[in-house]
Design a protein around this nucleic acid. Structure first.
Lengths: 64, 64
DNA sequence: CCATTATGGAAAGCAAACTTGACTAAATGA
DNA sequence: TCATTTAGTCAAGTTTGCTTTCCATAATGG
């Protein structure tokens, strides 16, 4: 499952650490999700959508 | 995390078994998600959204 | 030079998601 | 009456998400 975290973070000039704090997860979790090592849980996906003010579908992409 | 699975299933007259097959998960998983014992993974949430033709946000609800 | 920040990732462990198999109980319908 | 379908749940096992700790690398600024 691909995602646009890196770009969204860059647009806001947030470090992985900063995003992790806003999401209340570890920096390693943000890194792992961002680099595609695993997908977030659904509750975390909702929090991610919330901090960016976007729909889940606008951040995480069904990949072919 | 609440969800509208039971109603959406009823609208389409699908059994938990039928939905499970469309989602390619076990019937027990559908039941557990529907009765709120746990949340689906994000990839499964996308598949659920797809089979119902809705957005994830229209099926799963941030609960107070 | 050196200290700091940012990123990527490995290892070990716990918790949550998902599996199969089994059981119960209510409803249906022939 | 009996077989079938549906829904709910439990137990035990595997996989995945997330944690903490640690290490490595590159970029930045004094």
């Amino acid at each position: 499952m691909k995602n646009r975290l890196k770009v969204l973070r860059a647009e806001r000039d947030w470090s992985q650490q900063e995003l992790a704090e806003r999401l209340d997860v570890s920096r390693q979790s943000v890194n792992a999700i961002e680099t595609g090592r695993y997908d977030p849980s659904l509750p975390l996906a909702f929090r991610i959508a919330d901090v960016f003010g976007l729909a889940i579908e606008e951040i995480f992409l069904r990949e072919g």
